[in-house]
Simulated assay, not measured.
Amino acid sequence: MFGKKIAASAIMLFALTSAVAFADDTTLKASDAKVREEAQKFVVDFVGQAYKPYYTLNTIDSDISEYSVKDNVLTARVNISLSKTLKAKSVDEIPYVKGMKGQSAALKQTNAISAMETEQVISDRLKDLSEYIGTATEQNDSFRLTAKVVNGVIDNQSAKLEFLNYMDWIPAAHFIPETEETMMKHGQKDLLEAVTTNRAYTVRSAVQPQAAFTYNRIAARDYANKYTSTVTGSPYYDTSKWNKNYKFHTESGGVDCANYVSQAMYAGGIPTDSTWKPESIAWVNTGRNISNGLEDYMVRTKKYFYKTTKATTPAGGFISALDYSHVMFVVANDTVTMQYSAHTNDKLKASFANFSDSKFEFFYINSAYLQ
């Protein structure tokens, strides 16, 4: 947990984009405690307001790992650590589930899809989501605040707030959960796609024998959370938290992401073979910039995982970045917020923003392998 605790009830949302010009009338030192405190409060208030419709914030802590004031312009990296609980008292109150059930009822009336198929998909999803009802979830994120400082005080009107979506600083608006209506639409759309995927997989499995294993996605998730941490400063990884039974890949500033995700998958029960084993290309390389990497093996060669959407990727799945060679392991997804853990940069239970899917792909284990 971070050092400075601020009450979660303070939830004001400040203007993020407007700019106002002020005279250069004050000079601050980087040790100015008042400005630091204001920067932390700005971010804590923003997070509280963003999450208010869907979560009860049990605790929220903050600290600053980077801070500077130059020409009366503040730049601060504010890191938050929080505990949150869904306000929904049952899975049926989750907007995404409302969308799925509404779509299911409509399909049954038209006989477009059998009741058995839709009920199986919904039942599987409700099972995944039930673990979040009444259960506190921890989360760690980073924000970058830029603002003018006037007479020793942050000028909120000139403030610009960004969110660290893994390695990309993006507008903080993407951190805010989608509206209930949008989440319901995702549920409607994903029900149709899930049934189609299950049908195709059933046909394929009838002619292609399945591997003799089951995948325990919770064991994989727990492994992922055990062997990483939240690191907010250079070199952005901490090998003391890594599993010492595997080789560390810290070359080139740290390239351990696929090695770490492979370890989590193995902990979940996916068996090694002559192609996918520790230190093989399929184990330690993402496959984004080279053939026969982790994604190739899991998705196209073995077909253990299939491409899905953000909302339909529970804990136990993984995220692949398209703009650079990187994979992350999904450790929570209540359909309001997705969270992931990763190596180099090390992340523990960080949220994945509502950002363009065109920059990322999401993968989840085929249902035939689920425990």
Rank of each mutant, 00 (worst) to 15 (best):
F2L: 14
F2K: 08
A15G: 14
T17E: 15
A23C: 14
D24A: 12
D24G: 12
T27D: 10
D32S: 03
Q40A: 04
F46E: 06
F46P: 06
K52R: 10
D63V: 09
Y67I: 01
K70F: 11
K70L: 12
V73W: 04
V78N: 10
L82H: 13
K84W: 02
L86S: 03
L86T: 04
K89G: 14
D92E: 15
D92A: 12
E93S: 14
P95E: 07
Y96P: 09
V97G: 07
K101P: 03
K101T: 11
S104Q: 12
S104P: 02
N111P: 02
E117N: 09
T118W: 03
E119D: 15
K127Q: 14
D128K: 03
D128R: 02
Y132F: 14
T137R: 02
Q139L: 06
F143Y: 05
R144D: 09
K148I: 00
K148M: 05
V149W: 06
I154E: 05
D155Y: 00
S158M: 05
A172T: 00
F175S: 11
F175L: 08
F175C: 05
E180T: 11
E180I: 13
M184R: 06
G187R: 01
K189A: 15
L191G: 04
T196W: 00
A206T: 12
V207M: 05
P209Y: 03
T214V: 05
T214A: 02
A219F: 05
R221L: 00
T230C: 13
T230V: 10
S234C: 03
N243P: 03
K244N: 14
N245Y: 04
E251I: 09
E251V: 11
G253S: 12
C257Y: 05
A258M: 07
N259Q: 08
S262L: 00
A264C: 09
M265F: 08
Y266N: 15
I270M: 13
P271C: 03
W276V: 01
P278L: 00
S280F: 01
G287D: 10
I290F: 04
L294N: 09
D296S: 08
V299S: 03
K302Y: 00
F305Y: 03
T313L: 08
F318W: 05
F318P: 07
A321I: 15
L322A: 15
H326M: 08
M328V: 04
F329L: 08
A332H: 08
A332E: 13
N333R: 00
D334T: 11
V336Q: 12
V336C: 10
M338N: 13
Q339M: 10
Y340Q: 09
H343Q: 12
H343K: 04
N345R: 14
N354Y: 11
N366F: 01
